[in-house]
């Protein structure tokens, strides 16, 4: 031991100070150093895990929303088609109805016109008849007056008159 270099022989002073110093640094680092770093890394790991989980959930939710929106869109399209179909049917029915109505009205108008025409015709006939009657009376009157003058001439006169009347 005697002639061995000092680095090979344990020295009490150095051991003592090394022990004290090491305990101090161990205490400081174990209390203030490493737990903060390890804790932060652990928390970061948890944070990342949670974020990933949240992202996955959000993705799933998004996929659900997408499906739902597609479903809504499909439904809307169906409804639209249905509405268009209904509108077309309504249009057809309205047009048909309008046509029927127009026809009916037309017919009615025609009938009314016919009636009026008939009435006019009757009136005219009645007029003619009364005029004919008047004429007849006048003619008869004239004829009766003519009779007073002669038969033959009377007859010719009557004929002429009739022809005039015609």
């Amino acid at each position: 031991m005697g002639n061995m270099p000092s680095i090979l022989t344990p020295d009490f002073g150095l051991l003592f100070w090394m022990l004290v110093s090491f305990l101090v640094v161990f205490f400081l680092l174990a209390k203030y150093g490493f737990p903060a770093i390890l804790g932060a890394v652990e928390e970061r790991k948890n944070f990342i895990d949670e974020s990933l989980k949240n992202a996955r959930e959000a993705n799933e939710k998004l996929a659900g929303v997408k499906a739902e929106s597609e479903k809504l869109l499909r439904e809307a399209r169906e409804k639209q088609a249905q509405i268009i179909k209904e509108a077309m049917a309504t249009r057809d029915s309205i047009v048909a109805e309008a046509r029927d109505k127009a026809q009916a009205e037309g017919r009615q108008l025609l009938e009314e016109a016919k009636k009026q025409i008939d009435a006019e015709k009757d009136n005219a006939l009645r007029d003619i008849r009364s005029q004919v009657a008047d004429l007849s009376v006048q003619i008869a009157e004239k004829v009766i007056r003519r009779q007073l003058s002669g038969d033959g001439e009377q007859e010719k006169y009557i004929e002429r008159m009739l022809e005039d009347v015609k």
Partner: peptide, 27 residues
């Protein structure tokens, strides 16, 4: 009995100072 603050002791203290300088601000 010899507990002198030798060169190695000072070196240990310097090293400890370096260690604390690294880790405490980090923490």
């Amino acid at each position: 009995w010899d507990v002198s603050i030798t060169k190695d002791v000072v070196q240990i203290w310097i090293n400890i100072f370096v260690l604390l300088l690294i880790f405490i601000p980090c923490a």
